[in-house]
C-alpha cells in the first residue's frame, strides 16, 4: 500500500513531535540535537538557526569524535 507505516526517513530531516498528553513540543535536528518548547515558532527558529553547528560537526569524521564532541551534539543550549 502507499500509506506510510512510519515516519519519513532521510538524511536532512527536521522533526517536531507534540508529546502526547502534554502541551510540549520536542524538536529534533538531523544532527541529533534536541530541544523542547511550547511555542512552535520558537522551536522552528531554533531548528533553522542550527545549521551553523551542522557545518562544524561535518568537518569532524564520526570515527574521530571525542566524548566532548558527542556531548556537545546532544546538549545544545536551550
Amino acid at each position: 500500500m502507499t500509506v506510510p507505516d512510519g515516519l519519513p526517513t532521510g538524511d536532512r530531516l527536521y522533526r517536531i513531535h507534540w508529546l502526547p498528553g502534554t502541551d510540549t513540543l520536542r524538536g529534533t535536528c538531523h544532527c541529533g540535537a534536541e530541544r523542547t518548547a511550547d511555542d512552535p515558532v520558537e522551536l522552528w527558529q531554533w531548528l533553522l538557526d542550527h545549521p551553523r553547528d551542522h557545518l562544524a560537526q561535518r568537518a569532524v569524521p564520526a570515527t574521530r569524535r571525542t566524548p566532548a564532541d558527542a556531548a556537545r551534539r546532544t546538549s545544545v543550549p536551550a
Binding site: R15, I16, W18
Partner: peptide, 15 residues
C-alpha cells in the same frame, strides 16, 4: 490528537 511534523530539507517536503 497530537501531531508529528517532519520537514525533509533535501526533498522540500513537509509531512
Amino acid at each position: 490528537t497530537p501531531i508529528t511534523t517532519t520537514v525533509d530539507e533535501e526533498k522540500g517536503v513537509v509531512h
